[in-house]
């Protein structure tokens, strides 16, 4: 589904990703861990096509297509979703209207008519139940005045609505209490199937108790330095990152 090869990305002449490689297949969950400032969020931004980054080398193949030249909205419509670490507020735009616009824009590009109102409402109801989000959030301005946990839950709700092929969760667990964490994880687990894939960026092993990854990668200095299964996350939790630095000789 996703294959990133020898990716180099920099911002303001500072190289953040240095020969980054990963391959994600349908049905897989990959966790990416690592200390602060190692390029985890940059990776999420570069895959989704945020401006401001210079890509000097490498390729990102998604569903067999090179996507580096595509705009962020084109990538999104291909099925890439990012659950933001810091979801943005859009005053005056309700979650309902935002989702309606997003879904219909996608349908337009597929040559389909806008979704019928009844069908849309049914879909909303179903997905709201999935992430246990209250109806009242749907008519409020997007993320405006939402608590940290509410914002994250709203991200997962949007993911459920849009049913992406590849979802990137950028530190979705940060700022969540244990109950919210369980709800978010439950949502992800229910959406998971053999055709889609997840990249879960996190600092903490805690989330991975609920969203069990097939692979755990440790990122350091702009690339993956160690990969393993879910046990690697536990080891990191117990021993920290220093032993990896020692292994690397830095």
């Amino acid at each position: 589904m996703l294959k990133i090869t020898n990716l180099h990305a920099s911002i303001d002449d500072k190289e953040i990703l240095k020969s980054f490689n990963i391959e994600v297949k349908p049905g897989e969950i990959h966790a990416i861990m690592g200390p602060n400032g190692t390029g985890k969020s940059t990776l999420a931004n570069v895959i989704t096509g945020r401006d401001s980054y210079d890509i000097s080398e490498g390729s990102i193949i998604f569903k067999g297509e090179e996507i580096l030249e595509l705009s962020p909205d084109e990538r999104a419509r291909l099925g890439i979703f990012l659950a933001f670490q810091y979801p943005v507020e859009i005053p005056g735009v309700s979650t309902t209207n935002f989702m309606k616009a997003a879904i219909n824009e996608r349908r337009k590009h597929q040559g389909l008519d806008p979704m019928k109102a009844a069908e849309f409402l049914k879909l909303m109801k179903e997905k709201m139940a999935l992430v246990e989000i209250d109806q009242k959030f749907m008519s409020r301005s997007l993320n405006e005045g939402f608590s940290g946990g509410e914002k994250k839950r709203n991200e997962i709700f949007q993911m459920a609505m849009l049913e992406p092929s590849l979802a990137i969760l950028d530190e979705t667990d940060s700022g969540l209490d244990i109950d919210a964490l369980k709800i978010v994880s439950k949502g992800v687990n229910q959406l998971r199937n053999k055709d889609n894939a997840f990249i879960v960026i996190t600092h903490y092993q805690r989330l991975l108790d609920y969203i069990v990854p097939d692979f755990v990668h440790v990122m350091y200095d702009g690339r993956i330095v160690k990969s393993g299964n879910k046990d690697l996350a536990k080891e990191l939790e117990a021993r920290g990152y220093d032993w990896i630095k020692e292994e690397l000789g830095v």
């Binding site: 401006d51 999104a76 859009i90």
Partner: peptide, 30 residues
């Protein structure tokens, strides 16, 4: 209209023009 608001909308599949319409209409809703 922030780069971050635009990107957020882009990431949900909305092009720049559609994103601006949405943000501006929200701004004028009252």
């Amino acid at each position: 209209i922030g780069e971050d608001q635009l990107f957020y909308c882009n990431q949900r599949g909305l092009g720049d023009e559609e994103a601006v319409h949405l943000i501006v209409n929200g701004f004028c809703k009252e």
